[in-house]
Design a protein around this nucleic acid. Structure first.
Lengths: 267, 267
DNA sequence: AGTATTTTTTGGGAAGAGCCACAACACGAC
DNA sequence: GTCGTGTTGTGGCTCTTCCCAAAAAATACT
């Protein structure tokens, strides 16, 4: 029966599914589609928004970008600004005509956005579906995706197949994100990611770790690399006192964008 | 004062950048940010939208979903009802606990949606990023993604790597879409897809071709399969006179959902 | 069955967004 | 300098969306 009423939960799932396929849905549209009032849909969207499953917008809802951070609005905006600086800077490190490997994660995604924007001619190998999609939009970029088990949480593939695949390529540089950087080294929270990151490191002449300042001092479950193995650390800020010394000692090249801020025009 | 005026072009770039960072921006927000009128921003958005660089929305603009491209999205909106019926029916063909391969394309994407909705316990191997993302949502589904060159137009991977990878698995069934079905057989318009489809066919015990009725009689560039090789044809309607005879003759099993339509409630 | 609880609808006013046409302003060319 | 083109701002208006609260319907519970 096509006239069957959607239950609340079904509508929720349907909305999320819809959002996977297009970036934005309208309240009015969904209401017509489900055969319910706009008010009902509005409430659905509110529910889902509360759980951080989508982003509200006037007139409808937008898909949430990977990377769940529904903090305070002001803080998120701040954080984004830093990430943006980091991403922009990291993208400038990519040489025209080179080949690179790009890790999965919110920070590397940001990096990918700038790299796509810059239209640098480059060959990219990645295990992140998001990175592939972003860079695929740039006509200057050749993207190869690694195989493996699909991890919905991160929209990336992992596993032995992934690592084996990566082992088949040698590239100029890799750009790797991480959940933590401390005296212990680079660490990651998500199991399975560590092996992939290490596989990328092995195949790259130059290693760039993209880690924003908020991760400094943090240690997580799996070790990705010891301090000696870090080639260069790319961050939005230079590490401060205790950590910076250790890093310098261990031969880590620390890179960060020059901060020549002028008074913000935007209030 | 640093409140220097942004030029039109600068605003455009900034808007696009903003959209790469968050999925949705509001007109009012941007207006405040740039220090211009909402009307101006509206015009900016209109310009960018005309070039297909973003998606308009009431109250603002949304990013073009990475991977969700015009043609793919447009095709999705054509013949929705038919495609939906086809997808739903095809999903019902998947046995609990089985392993399948799923091809890229608008039709198979619809199929994937229903399969995810049904939460059938199944292992899926695919070369489509969209299919992977959709099915990855279902906790009952295990998804493996094939490697290969990324094709932004279709959000899928292709190439020899893809085919080689697929050759490493043997599955119960495959679900393959196509651009055309005629007396010649199954044909495809996009180069590179044919080889992948054939690779999937080789590794599957049962072959399902998901082809909606609008493709009947059409012939495209590359041949995917001869009529003998088609296992079963899944469609929204049974083929009519000239084609149906040939298909029956060549041993094609024709499947389509029983059409017990009631008056459409939603329209 | 009948009651309780959740969910949806309805209605109306406030706020926001869209659209249009014309005026004001900037910038480059001559 | 003036002219012309292109861009931006303003005001007036309409339409959509939002939000709230109460009624109605559907669903779950005993």
């Amino acid at each position: 029966m096509t006239t069957r009423r959607y239950k609340k939960q079904e509508r929720h799932e349907q909305i999320l599914l819809e959002l996977k396929l297009k970036p934005h849905v309208r309240v009015a549209e969904l209401a017509k589609q489900f055969g319910v009032t706009t008010e009902t849909v509005r409430r659905d969207i509110e529910d889902l928004g509360r759980d951080g499953l989508l982003q509200r917008a006037h007139g409808g809802a937008s898909a949430r970008h990977a990377g769940a951070h529904h903090d305070l609005d002001a803080r998120r905006h701040q954080r984004v600004a830093e990430r943006e600086r980091l991403g922009r800077f990291a993208a400038s490190l990519v040489a025209e005509g080179s080949s690179i490997m790009v890790d999965a994660g919110a920070t590397t995604m940001e990096f990918a956005r700038f790299l796509a924007f810059a239209e640098t001619r480059v060959t990219v190998i990645t295990n992140s579906l998001q990175v592939a999609m972003i860079l695929g939009q740039s006509p200057a970029t050749d993207v190869r995706l690694a195989p493996g088990e699909y991890l919905p949480r991160e929209a990336a593939v992992v596993g032995t197949e992934t690592c084996e695949y990566l082992a088949g390529y040698n590239v100029d540089a890799c750009f790797i994100g991480a959940a933590g950087l401390s005296e212990v080294g680079v660490t990651e929270a998500i199991a399975g990611f560590g092996a992939v990151k290490r596989a990328m490191m092995r195949q790259s002449r130059v290693r760039h770790f993209l880690i924003d300042a908020s991760k400094f001092g943090q240690t997580h479950m799996t070790r990705v690399a010891s301090l000696d193995e870090i080639g260069s650390l790319v961050s939005d800020r230079h590490p401060t006192a205790p950590l910076s010394g250790v890093l310098r000692e261990r031969g880590v090249r620390m890179l960060s964008p020059d901060i020549q801020k002028s008074a913000p025009a935007r209030a």
